[in-house]
Structure formats: C-alpha cells, structure tokens
Design a binder for these strands. Structure first.
Lengths: 137, 137
DNA sequence: TGGCATAGGGATAAATTTATCTCCTATGCT
DNA sequence: AGCATAGGAGATAAATTTATCCCTATGCCA
C-alpha cells in the first residue's frame, strides 16, 4: 500500500474535514448513500463515470474514517450494502450545502471553469439519475 | 501551463463546488480572507506550512473562479490584497461548517486518521493563529 | 554593500490520486 | 462452454497536485 511521505496537516477543523471529504467521488458517494442507493452495483449505475475500482477504494477510505459502514450479507450471489454512520449523517448538511451552492451558481461557475485554459473539455451525464430521484421525493 | 487530459466532471452541484474548493489550502485561504487576513505576507505567516508558491497558485485559481479579487496597490514596496467576492462570501457558510464539524469531531477524527496505515505522521501548528484571532472576536 | 521585506512566477521534481488492466469467487442461464 | 450478475483487489500506468529551487524588482537599514 502507498504510504504518505508528507505529514498530513490536521491542525484545524478545516483540514480534518478536508481530509475526510477529499476524493473525487466521496461527496457523491455520501449523497448516494443518503438517498438509499447503497449497493455497489446501484452506486456504479448512478455514477457511470467512475470505475468500480475507484468507488471501492473511496468507499474503503470512508469506512476507515468511520463515515460509513459496510454490511456484507452471507448470500450468493453476494450482497453488500453501505450505510452512513451517525458521524456520516452529520456531514450531510455540508454535502447538501455544496450541492445547492453549486446548483445555485451553475451558470456562473460553468462559465468561469470553461474559461480556465487548463480545462479543455468538461463532462456531463452522471449524477443526473439521483438528481431526478431527489426531485421525485 | 498544464492542460487537463481528462474532462472535468461538472454535472452536479457537488462536483462544481468540489472543483472550486479543491486545493489543499483553498478552504484555509478563504477562511483567512474572511477574517481580514488579506495580504500575501500575512497569509503566509498564518499558514506557515504552505509555501509562498502554492498559496500564489491557489489564490490565482480562486481568482480565476471568481471567488476572490486581487487589488494591487501601485506602491513600493508592493502591496497586494485579496478580497472575497460576493460569490466568495456565499461559500463561507460551508467553510464555517467544515471548520466546526472538524473541530466537533476532532478527537474521533484524529484517532481514525492516525489508524490509517498510509498516514505515518501528522503535522500541527498552523491555523492556530487564526483560531486565536477568531476566538478573540 | 549585504541582508531583509514586499510580491511574482518559470522550470522541474516529487508526491499523491485516479485510471486501466487483469485476475478471482460463485451461481445460474442458454 | 460462455456469458451475466455480484463483489473484491493487486499491479502498474497516467494524470494531477504540491513542493523545491531559483531568479526578477525596489527600497530601507545597519
């Protein structure tokens, strides 16, 4: 396994939180779990741009950080479900806020992000599924 | 300049927000600016673990994303100040929430983070300055 | 004049994170 | 057999982010 060479900065709450949420798919994963999309295969369908591998890795990290719990059912075919822990749930207000903030400023943000010379192209399509689910409720 | 090879995922608000806040020092920078620590040299003193270079780079990105504004005073020695824009200010509730969440769960988080085999050592010391300033108000 | 403070930025190396590819378990269906 | 579903994980490559180093400029002070 890869071992960090630079000490992790965990001096202030900001850095602690950053460490927990740091991962391309982590906010999306938490969002999915909060909406009861909890089986790996379902999550993958929800986030088609992510590979199974990355999701596994990031789920594992969230689990190690005590944010989610994994339940393995002794069945065949195998069945696994992930659940937010109490601490995991306490993160949701932030996740929701991020979602809302991003949506509220979408037009502006898409414009400035696309002006960035490093960003040659952007991708859309994922997350839409759960957006629709959320709307449906 | 480095040019992205993988399209940026900007489909949902979560990813847009993630893109804006993505950077080791960005939350801390926004926090500093919100507390009126706005000159590069002051910010550097506040975040001694960051190098001048990284702060410049991340400040530039925040500026490009419309989150902060840079004011250059035509003086010698040079004087520069950064300010949160209106949109930048609208991010502060999230930054504050991250700060509070991390602090509220500090004991737990430090424990699980240190159990992570990739994390050999952690660093403390920075951010303390502005924590004290915040308390002072 | 050497050293410090102010501020900025290019080039490059190193660290870290993501992506890709391969292989594994087991059951059931055609 | 061959493919699908369900879930997992090692090895390695590629992409991206951070860290390091070095150089620019002006003015002040000992």
């Amino acid at each position: 396994m890869y071992e960090r060479k630079i000490p992790l900065t965990i001096d202030c709450g900001l850095h602690l939180t950053r460490e927990v949420l740091n991962g391309k798919w982590k906010p999306a994963l938490l969002n999915a779990l909060s909406m009861e999309v909890r089986r790996p295969s379902e999550i993958l369908r929800l986030l088609p741009e992510a590979t199974r591998r990355v999701l596994n890795v990031q789920l594992k990290e969230l689990e190690n950080h005590g944010i989610i719990e994994k339940k393995i059912y002794a069945q065949l075919p195998p069945k696994v479900e992930y659940f937010l822990t109490e601490i995991g749930w306490s993160l949701m207000p932030m996740i929701d806020a991020m979602n809302q903030w991003g949506d509220a400023h979408r037009t502006f943000l898409e414009t400035v992000i696309k002006q960035d010379p490093k960003v040659v192209k952007t991708a859309k399509s994922a997350c839409l599924a759960y957006r629709q689910m959320a709307v449906a409720k």
